[in-house]
Each structure stands twice: as C-alpha cells, then as structure tokens.
Simulated scan of single mutants.
Amino acid sequence: MTTTLVTGATGYLGRHLVAELHRRGHTVRAVVRNRSRAEQPGKRESPSLAGLVDEWAIGQLGDESFVADAVSGVSSVVSALGVTTQKADPWDIDYRANLAVLEAAQRNRVDSFCFVNVIGGDRCTAELTKAKTAFALALSGSSISSLIINPPGYFSDMMQVFDMAKRGRVYLFDPERRINPIHGADLAAACVDRLESGEQGNWDIGGPDVFTWRQLAECAFTALEKKPRLTRIPPAALTPIQAIASLVTPRRADTLRFVTWGMLNDSVGEPVGTHHLAEFFAEQANTLSTDRW
C-alpha cells in the first residue's frame, strides 16, 4: 500500500484520519511537532496516534527543508491543517503552510491531495475562511489531482452549544437555520473513501442528522436532562458585538465572525456516517455525571 502524508495529524480530525488510514492498511506518515503529545489521547475522544503511525515527520511546516523531506516519497497528502484555538494568523497556517506542502507535493509528483475545507467558506467574511478558500483555489488549479471536502462543523464544535446548555441557557442568532455536524471518524472515512476511489472534485459532507439550531440546542438540554431555555439574539446586534471584540482581540473577533456566520446560514452537506449527535451529547453528559462522583 502506498504512503499517505497527513498534516494537522494531532488535531481532532487529523487523529481520526490517521486512525482510518491505518485501519485500511495505508502506510501513514504523520506530520507532528511533538511525538509525545501526539501519542496522548486527543480532545473529545479523538484517538492517540500511538501504534497508528508508520513514519513520523517531526518538525515545523515553516521550515522549507523539513517540508521537502516530509513530502518526499509519498503518493498522496491529506491535510486537516488549520488554525483552531491557536493565536496564529490563519493566513500563515491555513494558506501558506498548506501551500508550502502543495508546492513540495507538485515537485515530488504526488498523485493526489485531499484538503478539508468548510461549507460556504467562499461566502464567509472571516479571515479564517478566506485563507482556506484561497488555498482551495490554489489546490484546484494545481497539477495534482485535488479532493476538497467541506464539512459544516464537527461534533466537537457543537460543544459550544452543549456548554451553554450546561450553564442553563443557549443563545442563538437564527434558531431555524439548519446544520448537520459530523463526527470526526465519519468525516475521516468519507475523506479516505474518496481518496481511494481515485476521484477528484469538491464535496459538501455532513453527518446523518440535520438539525435546526433550535433542535440542536434542545438535543443538548435533553442529554443534560434540563428544561430548554433559549434566547434569540437579533442579527443586528452582531455588528456592534464584533466591533467591540475587535478592539480587545482581532483574532477572537475573527473567530466570532466565523462562528456566527455558521449560525446565520444553512450549512448542510450530503448526509453520511453512523455517529449521531444525540448519542455524543449523552456521552458528554454521562462523563459529567461520572466526574461528579
């Protein structure tokens, strides 16, 4: 089986990608900054990479010689690389770091490059999604067979709603907008399915259950066995909220633009997978009960 390079391997999705590729018999080369951290369990039940990686590429993607070595000899690249909670500039990570890997992949005549983007990223005004969109365009125009997967959001992202429900009230901008978030394991399987098919293209992929944001919040309250309490924030209030946030921390203001855009627009992809958000929330609630004891 050919060698697949995974970037962003220690993130929530990246860990599931490594696990899925390993399960299917791929030789996996994982880019990480710290092997010890990578071999610890990840957040939200994403797996440890211990025993799943055949070749470790330990270093920084800002190092040109490291990138060249990491890409050398691989037949495909799967990138889950992107800014999440870091303070880094998304243009440095989501665009420039991915672009450095793509350029090295083209020089090494890599067969295919799979990039995990986001649904509707080309319409969102956040710098995060602008950077992702810019890279997706570069990938589509490259000489490599490109696969671009656009999820609406992960189960782990929905923990923001779960945490609000835990505190007793969920705040929503447009409760009737729809979303079908996806578990990392299901998205990883969808990515590898398309990688192995030899196809190239652009796919919107979501989980098996479509919710309105109201229903999603009620799902969290049900798991916590709490009475639903929802407050709708008028979209008109968003502009002054973002303006205030940008004065304090521009990075957080950009994250706010990204999150609220998702709440104000339908984000529904092709339903796939076997993991259900209600079960995920129930597991999180059960963990809370266990921790109390």
Rank of each mutant, 00 (worst) to 15 (best):
M1S: 14
M1Y: 13
M1K: 14
T7K: 06
G11H: 11
G11R: 09
L13I: 05
V18L: 00
A19H: 08
E20G: 15
L21Y: 01
R24H: 05
V28D: 02
A30T: 04
R35Y: 06
S36I: 11
A38Q: 07
A38K: 01
K43A: 07
S46M: 02
L49P: 02
L52E: 10
L52P: 09
V53A: 02
D54H: 13
E55Y: 12
I58R: 14
G62N: 06
F66W: 10
V67K: 07
V67N: 04
D69K: 13
A70H: 05
V74H: 14
S76Q: 05
V77R: 02
T85N: 07
Q86K: 01
K87I: 14
W91N: 05
Y95C: 07
N98G: 11
L99C: 07
V101S: 10
L102S: 05
N108D: 13
S112A: 15
F113K: 13
F115K: 10
F115M: 10
F115H: 10
I119A: 08
G121E: 03
G121K: 02
D122T: 06
R123D: 14
A126L: 01
A131T: 12
T133Q: 14
S140I: 04
G141P: 07
S142W: 09
S142D: 09
S143C: 15
I149A: 12
N150W: 10
N150F: 11
G153P: 09
Y154R: 06
F155G: 02
M158D: 05
Q160G: 12
D163W: 08
R169Y: 10
V170Y: 02
V170P: 03
Y171K: 01
D174M: 09
P175D: 15
R177V: 00
R178K: 14
R178V: 09
I179A: 04
I179R: 00
P181S: 07
I182S: 07
G184S: 00
L187S: 03
A188T: 12
C191D: 01
V192T: 03
E199H: 12
Q200P: 08
N202L: 11
N202G: 15
W203V: 12
D204F: 07
I205E: 00
P208F: 01
D209Q: 09
W213M: 11
W213H: 10
L216S: 02
C219E: 03
C219R: 01
T222I: 15
A223D: 04
E225G: 00
K226D: 11
T231G: 00
T231D: 01
I233S: 01
A237F: 04
A243V: 08
A243Q: 12
I244A: 04
R252P: 01
A253Q: 04
L256V: 00
T260W: 05
T260R: 07
W261C: 05
S267C: 09
G269D: 10
E270Q: 04
E270W: 04
T274W: 10
T274N: 11
H275D: 11
H276A: 03
Q284W: 13
L288H: 04
T290V: 15
T290A: 11
W293Y: 14
